[in-house]
Design a binder for these strands. Structure first.
Lengths: 242, 242
DNA sequence: TTTTGATATTTGATGCAACAAAAAAGTTTA
DNA sequence: TAAACTTTTTTGTTGCATCAAATATCAAAA
């Protein structure tokens, strides 16, 4: 069928180039669309067409197609008909399932991170937390959500488990659109703050169970707020009544 | 940016069609390649080119490209150079990470399945187990692995969590190639049998913790066997020495 | 023999056109 | 007015040509 590669390349003496990164229009388009979805820039129900995406991203249909196809595979977009791709609605059952998986995986990542986290990391986390606090004070809710995401993923990355982080990212990707139009209401609560402080303390103490508990609490409190908003905002962005 | 669709489609009276499935060359190519990977038909290190895949699958480069791109996104294939896509090697750290995630997610799926599993399901699982036993007796190791997969995923599907099952599938996809050429050695052990029996008993008793424990044990025992094989088979299919 | 460099080949990325299917718009009819 | 039909437009799919970059091949030089 296919030939297996057998060669083993010689390592360069200087061993410099850490491998040039990917750069292709398809990759960029994918990243751009994904980013829009994660940060809730796209309202659930938004219909995406090949050519409209291509136009907005200023690429041809081929890279746009790449991006859409991949995002559908991840669940970030869904096929809602023969020729209709839309930003998915987040139903309560969906939220339940995603939350259950998040508790498992982000809990695991949080635990593991205690083994690798550095003092510098903790300082950075404290700065992010200050950014969150300031954002709450000054009503810059987008900042709050951004910093919140950075806070979580900095911890998760320190698990040293790349695949795990990727999977968690795909879960946030699925949640993103549900935040569309909810920024003020959602970010206003300060219950998340204490959870983050507990997480920080746990990291300093190198206490995996404590960090896990803090993250789990944070996820649960987010779940409560989001699930109530899902019901309340039904007419504006909820699932279309069938 | 994009227009949001506002229509709410009328639900069909009969509400039958569970939505006609996708059928496109790209989708088929993806499914075919993915299947090859999961069942270990492709040796790690195998180099895939657009045109070779297109030729084998008897499609043009476009669907082949779709399949490869998506699989790379899932980690089922990796980019090992500027223009080189290969079936990934499974290193021990990789296996460790995947196993940790599997314990979390397959444990969760196993737990949840106890809430929905039916008598018919249990019967089917028993039949699958008999197929496993027969396969072991008669040395039909491919059958053993196939039935083993069916056994696990029947349980996981009964969790009612679709996304969870998809994620678990992507983990198996990552493990598949490591089984290439290991069928006899790997399937010979019968330690998995008792774990399956424990799982069955747990399902009958509707005991989530017991089912979870059985599945976790099964995963751990598989981990032990595979990790030792990984080291042993180094020269034949291990990572190329650099 | 090994190394070096030039040449030929292969490769993925990208854009694009053709096509059929689907949706939308418009028109006619009851 | 609404239902049924027709026409027009839009859409995703697919194949393919082009191009630059990477690879493989091979011959000359050391």
């Amino acid at each position: 069928m296919f030939a297996a590669s057998k060669k083993g390349k010689e390592a360069l003496p200087g061993d410099l180039a850490p491998i040039g990164r990917h750069s292709s229009l398809g990759e960029s388009a994918y990243a751009a669309l994904k980013d829009s979805l994660i940060r809730g820039a796209l309202q659930p129900g938004t219909k995406l067409t090949l050519r409209s995406v291509a136009q907005v991203l200023e690429v041809s249909t081929t890279p746009a197609r790449d991006a859409i196809t991949r995002l559908i595979g991840e669940g970030g977009l869904i096929n809602a008909g023969p020729k209709t791709v839309i930003v998915p609605y987040l139903s309560l059952p969906d939220l339940d399932e995603i939350t259950a998986i998040r508790l498992s995986l982000e809990g695991l990542a949080a635990e593991q991170s205690t083994n690798h986290v550095t003092e510098a990391d903790i300082h950075e986390l404290e700065e992010l937390q200050q950014r969150i606090n300031r954002g709450l004070d000054e009503g810059r809710y987008t900042d709050v959500l951004d910093a919140n995401k950075d806070f979580h993923f900095l911890i998760y990355r320190r698990s040293g488990m790349r695949r795990l982080v990727t999977i968690i990212e795909s879960l946030w990707l699925r949640m993103g659109p549900a935040f569309n139009g909810l920024y003020p209401e959602f970010a206003q609560s300060r219950t998340g703050v204490s959870n983050h402080l507990w997480a920080l303390r746990g990291l300093q103490d190198r206490d995996p169970a404590a960090v896990r508990a803090a993250i789990e609490n944070d996820i649960r409190s987010g779940y409560r707020r989001l699930s109530s908003q899902l019901g309340a905002a039904g007419d504006q962005q909820g699932e279309p009544v069938t």
